[in-house]
């Protein structure tokens, strides 16, 4: 009986420990929309899903590497993460005094982010899903034509070191999701579907509309510029890259397959 009791305590601790780093999720109602950057005729559909309210924190990732030693920075294989992986952390299992446990984890490769989400029974969001949720401001599901929304994003691009702030320090959007803008850039599952790196003439054609800006700077141009920055970052990344201002969050399908 005593063993049983101890076992229970142990499991409960594991459980709460787990629950603690499992980020809270909120439902996102799917729809069809025209992505910020793309041709007018190009609509994409997004199904219902759940999204993490916050980006994954240092604390949550710390728990993860303790459970999965292959993702410790001393043990990770170079094919999955370059030498900048977790480079802001002091050791394998401590982040150092200058940082907060509640800050988003950065210096994370796509492989690491992808595996983290898989281990929580989740996945990385697609670009279309991420952009869909990110076009909301506090009150509108699609605030892309709102001047203040675009100005906010662009002013963030100019602010240094926002990745040091804690999660939840920006605004809660229409979907109750925090920090899509204003904290860190975020990995997406299919970031490598952005074909603007110009490795072949054929591919570049697809994005020529990106560079045909109009001369006047109206809300639409600002909005395109803000989105262009995100797509350009995605287009320039390799999956084993780790940037100091690039974190991630996970999503989950509403109806799990099978």
């Amino acid at each position: 009986m005593a063993t049983l009791f101890r076992l229970t305590i142990c499991i409960l601790m594991l459980w709460t420990g787990n629950a603690y780093c499992q980020s809270e999720m909120v439902p996102i109602k799917g729809s069809t929309y025209t992505p910020l950057y793309g041709r007018d005729s190009l609509q994409v559909s997004v199904s219902d899903f759940f999204m993490d309210v916050y980006p994954v924190t240092n604390q949550a990732y710390l728990e993860f590497v303790k459970e999965h030693p292959k993702w410790k920075k001393s043990q990770v294989k170079r094919i999955f993460a370059d030498e900048n992986y977790l480079s802001a952390w002091e050791t394998d299992t401590s982040i150092g005094k200058s940082q907060s446990l509640q800050s988003p984890v950065t210096h994370i490769s796509w492989f690491a982010a992808n595996d983290y989400c898989a281990c929580q029974g989740k996945r990385l969001p697609s670009i279309d899903e991420w952009e869909y949720v990110a076009m909301a401001n506090e009150s509108l599901a699609d605030a892309r034509r709102t001047e203040a929304y675009n100005a906010y994003i662009l002013s963030w691009y100019e602010k240094p070191q926002t990745f040091r702030n804690e999660v939840g320090s920006t605004f809660k959007n229409y979907w109750q999701v925090y920090d899509l803008h204003g904290l860190v850039w975020e990995w997406t599952y299919d970031f490598n579907s952005v074909l603007i790196s110009g490795e072949s003439r054929k591919d570049v054609d697809k994005d020529s509309n990106l560079f045909c800006g109009s001369a006047a700077v109206g809300a639409t141009d600002l909005m395109n510029y803000a989105a262009f920055m995100r797509y350009a970052i995605r287009g320039s990344l390799k999956a084993n890259n780790n940037m100091k201002n690039l974190g991630f969050r996970c999503v989950k399908d509403k109806i799990p397959p099978k």
Binding site: V194, L195, S200, D203, K206, G235
Partner: peptide
């Protein structure tokens, strides 16, 4: 470091590497 995207049910654009 190959990029690809499904652009229609039967077509993909992709890098040529």
């Amino acid at each position: 470091a190959v990029k690809y995207k499904q652009i229609s049910p039967i077509d993909f654009s992709h890098s040529n590497i």
